[in-house]
Design a protein around this nucleic acid. Structure first.
Length: 668
DNA sequence: CGCCGCGGT
């Protein structure tokens, strides 16, 4: 959300990009690909689309697409450009993000998320309505930091896939212009990526790099002389040291997760109270994505006079969110990262040392408005041992959704797709196997029609997409839609708060279904949309996250529209038999049709055993955490620390599993 | 018995 950078509010003619207007237009005219290097505040995102529009790139009804990594970036930048062009947002300038389309037939400049542009490519494979596509990959130029020349760079799965797709489209559309804004270090790589043909030969007529200058304040880096034994302790101590010895300025502490953050906030409060009287007081504030929005807002409010703010945050503060007034950064040197094990199919979420690029980006948070200081809770030798940059998502994620998407985009040979960095073969193989078992791919690994194509179009992961497509045959489309929408929220259904856990669990019991979490989620959804209850207060009283519930309604509507387009009868509900055993069985059989690969059996000790022998535990947030069951299917599997948890669990019968996927269970 | 880093369709 770097859109609030000071540069944006400078008159456009004074922005650094203004001096490069003519050369930029020349390059875009001459080369199919232009790589722009320049940092936040250079004005490239707001000005370049306007230059292109003025230069005639929107003639003949064509439009310019600009992708952003975040929804909030797409909407705010679009609003800014509309204001500069003195037009109403949604007319000449608009944006399009999931659930919100602020564009019209008059729209020439369109901001959007990269994931949404990929979806458009399913319908319009050559993206023919665009004359220019500008892809923003957040980049951070930090070469003014002491002793460092380094850059960080967000690499989401969708933006990696988009760039590969654009390269493919360009071969068929020489008229298309591609602009990529990138970090200096990657600029050459991008150019080579687009210029290389299938044999690796580089063409020099494909593209060019344009650099725009920008600046940042210096940040002093301080390392530990000896490694810290407990970085939470050390972070608290550093906060107090800064507070008692350093001039005014707020503090930002990077830690890895909720529990650590809450503990640190409590420790700071406790220790600060024990200090001798200080001229200013300390106000520690937690910040992580799971925190309710109203509590997140506190960190953006300027501290009162005589108060020094200490924001204790996860990686959310590294690039997603910008807090003004930070003069000191404390970096624990770790981040929680997801990884996917293709052999076991289990995702892990573990604290891992950050990359040098990431550490640099964290330090840079102290130098946004004036010179700052960064205290690294590790040694300089440790920093030197960190990887240069974080392993891109495409090399560590479950690729089933991505591979399905590529197939639907007409890329049959996923092994030969132009990846920026190719994923490990095992990840691709595992994804292909699952998609085959779900019937999305045939014996020749070709997308099945209509089933595979429809699964790709539905905005849920392949297993849940299969559930939705099977629901009609079980007579539970309406219920499956609600469950799909609720599981899409990814655990954000319940409003968690320190000290109210007991009460929250009591509230949860009101919705509990004997059969497990999916039916419970359905009960929650039905209660929310039930007469007169679709309101924030009702949610609060029942310990539900209102924002998430509203989102579930949107997701369900969108999924429903897709099913209607597939001519699936959505009204087919078992509502009249509500609560009856037939409804419950139909629904659970339907879940099995998609989630047969996520089956496990409860052991006498209450743990579960997967079909491949892995020992699993019901996540404490699950109803099955302390209930008896035999066979179950589950939505998600994650390993944290040294335990493997399953979440969103529902009781099923073994024979349903065998019926749903006989070949899958025979080969195991 | 004891817990999800951050995004996106």
């Amino acid at each position: 959300m770097d859109v609030t950078a000071s540069g944006l509010y400078r008159p456009p003619s004074l922005l650094p990009i203004a001096r490069h207007r003519e050369s930029l237009l020349y390059l875009v005219e001459t080369f199919p690909v232009t790589i722009i290097v320049g940092q936040t505040g250079s004005g490239k995102t707001t000005q370049i689309p306007q230059y292109l529009d003025q230069a005639g790139w929107c003639a003949d009804g064509k439009a310019i697409a600009i992708t952003q990594p975040r929804r909030v970036a797409a909407t705010t930048v679009a609003a800014r450009v509309a204001e500069e062009m003195r037009c109403q947002l949604g007319q000449d300038v608009g944006y399009s993000i999931r659930f919100e389309d602020a564009t019209s037939s008059a729209t020439r400049i369109k901001f959007m998320t990269d994931g949404l542009l990929l979806r458009e490519a399913l319908v319009d494979p050559l993206l023919s309505r665009y004359s220019v596509i500008m892809v923003r990959r957040s980049s951070f130029k930090t070469s003014l930091l002491m002793k460092q020349v380094d850059e960080a760079h967000e690499r989401s799965l969708s933006s990696d896939v988009l760039l590969g797709l654009l390269k493919k489209i360009q071969k068929k559309r020489p008229d298309l212009r591609i602009i990529v804004s990138s970090a200096t270090i990657q600029a050459e790589d991008f150019l080579r990526f687009f210029a290389a043909d299938e044999n690796g030969e580089i063409s020099d007529s494909i593209g060019c790099i344009l650099s725009i200058d920008g600046r940042m304040y210096p940040v002093d880096i301080h390392y530990l002389k000896e490694p810290a034994e407990d970085y939470v302790e050390r972070a608290v101590k550093t906060v107090l040291d800064i507070h008692t010895k350093e001039p005014d300025g707020d503090i930002l502490v990077f830690l890895t997760g909720r529990e650590e953050i809450e503990r640190t906030v409590a420790l700071i409060t406790e220790r600060a109270a024990a200090l001798p009287p200080q001229p200013t007081s300390l106000q520690p504030l937690p910040l992580y994505a799971g925190l309710p929005t109203d509590q997140q807002m506190y960190v953006f409010e300027p501290a009162a006079d005589g108060v020094r703010k200490v924001v204790v945050a996860t990686n959310i503060a590294e690039a997603s969110v910008t807090i003004d007034g930070i003069a000191y950064v404390i970096d624990c040197g770790f981040v929680k990262l997801r990884a996917y094990n293709p052999v076991t199919g289990i995702e892990t979420l573990t604290a891992t040392p950050v990359s040098q690029a990431s550490a640099t980006q964290r330090a840079g948070r102290a130098g946004r408005t004036k010179p700052g200081k960064c205290y690294r809770l590790y040694t300089e030798a440790a920093f030197a041992s960190f990887a240069a940059s974080t392993v891109p998502e495409i090399q560590r994620a479950n690729l089933a959704p991505t591979i399905l998407q590529l197939k639907a985009l007409g890329i049959d040979n996923v092994a030969r797709f132009a990846y920026l960095t190719p994923p490990p073969a095992e990840l691709v193989t595992r994804a292909l196997e699952l998609l085959y078992a779900l019937g999305a791919l045939d014996d020749y690994a070709k997308l099945t029609r209509p089933q595979g194509l429809r699964m790709a179009e539905l905005a849920v992961e392949p297993m849940m997409a299969k559930v939705l497509l099977c629901a009609a045959s079980f007579g539970c489309v309406s219920e499956a839609l609600s469950i799909a929408a609720m599981t899409s929220l990814g655990g954000a259904v319940w409003f968690e708060h320190e000290g109210m856990k007991k009460a929250g669990e009591g509230a949860r019991r009101k919705f509990a279904a004997e059969e497990g979490d999916h039916l419970t989620l359905l009960n929650v959804y039905l209660a929310f949309v039930g007469r007169g209850k679709k309101e924030a207060k009702w949610c609060k009283d029942h310990y539900l996250n209102y924002k998430s519930m509203v989102r579930a309604v949107s997701i369900r509507n969108q999924l429903k529209r897709y099913l209607e387009r597939f001519s699936i009868n959505v009204e087919e509900s078992l509502a009249e038999k509500q609560g009856g055993p037939e409804r419950s069985e139909a629904l659970r059989r339907c879940l099995v049709a998609g989630f047969f690969a996520h089956a496990a059996r409860m052991q006498p000790d209450g743990s579960f055993k997967a079909v491949n022998g892995t020992v699993l535990h019901a996540h404490p947030s699950s109803l099955m955490f302390n209930r008896k069951a035999d066979w179950v299917v589950f939505h998600e599997i994650t390993e944290t620390g040294n335990k493997t948890f399953i979440r969103d669990i529902t009781k099923v019968e073994k024979k349903w599993l065998l019926e749903a996927a006989p070949q899958y269970y025979n080969t195991k």
